[in-house]
Design a binder for these strands. Structure first.
Length: 265
DNA sequence: ATGGCACATCGAATGTGA
């Protein structure tokens, strides 16, 4: 069984202890991290190498940042959209470090930190929609030559109302607006399956809870961290679960890790 | 409707997140 996890850690330097403790009890094969919030020069690699992980990183100062930790060496590591789409079609979208991908054997792993969007009337929201449209082009290009693609990360989108604790009146709330849901659907229409929903239909399962207003103890959360699989991989999925345990710990990330297990081919 | 909390950069207050 192959185990992969995604976790927005909200600063890897602030979460060293949490990440180390979690990896010791959940020695996943691949861990995809978002919001590392650190330059590549300052990224702490030693703690994970001591646990047997190889590190592949793409970060920047203060904001964003993604990383792959893998027990086996990965190949074909690339960062941003431009290695696939060319810099002409990408513009400034690669300035923010939100995309890293690599292969584990024949398995393509794509780790994403989708822009939040701030609010519907902001420039950040239009940036989010432009970013998602570019992601669709990126995946369409990849699918021309590859079939085994796993996408995961912080999507900052709740796909449906059952993915929000209180969906009423959220139609104008970033992460739940129709344009971003449609942008996500156009990506999934390339053939990707929401792995969590292969196994769990009911609502009440969330991966992010606001730090404020006691959201976590009240379970007022959103499911915005996802695993998506192309058809040959979807058939191999055996479980997809959210581990809320670290959210109880002292000074946690506001996101919980989401785990995926795949049957070996 | 608003704010609430956390993090990084700073060395006070602001930008950002979601």
């Amino acid at each position: 069984m192959l185990t992969l996890a995604t976790w927005n850690v909200n600063s890897i330097r602030t979460r060293l202890d949490h990440l180390g403790t979690w990896l010791e009890t959940h020695p996943v094969d691949v861990l995809c991290l978002q919001e590392t919030k650190v330059t590549d020069e300052q990224f702490p690699q030693a703690p994970w190498e001591a646990l047997g992980y190889h590190c592949y990183i793409s970060g920047q100062k203060a904001y964003n940042g993604v990383a792959l930790l893998s027990r086996s060496p990965l190949t074909e590591v690339s960062r941003g959209f431009s290695p696939v789409l060319g810099s002409d079609g990408v513009g400034d979208l690669d300035d923010q470090k939100r995309v890293i991908t690599a292969k584990l054997g024949d398995l393509r792993i794509l780790n994403l930190y989708v822009p939040n969007g701030s609010s519907v009337d902001s420039d950040k929201y239009s940036y989010k929609l432009r970013w998602l449209a570019t992601l669709r082009d990126y995946l369409a290009t990849l699918l021309a030559t590859e079939t085994q693609i796993h996408i995961c990360g912080d999507f900052n989108i709740a796909p449906g109302d059952r993915d929000i604790h209180d969906p009423q009146g959220k139609g104008n709330h970033v992460m739940a607006t129709e344009p971003e849901r449609q942008a996500l659907q156009q990506i999934l229409d390339l053939g990707f399956t929401d792995t969590f929903r292969q196994f769990t239909a009911e609502g009440g399962h969330f991966s992010w809870w606001d730090y404020r207003a006691g959201s976590f103890p009240r379970n007022k959360g959103w499911r915005i961290d996802h695993h998506y699989l192309s058809p040959p991989l979807a058939d191999r999925a055996r479980s997809c679960t959210i581990d809320a345990e670290p959210r109880y710990w002292e000074k946690p990330s506001d996101h919980a890790p989401v785990l995926l297990t795949l049957d070996q081919p």
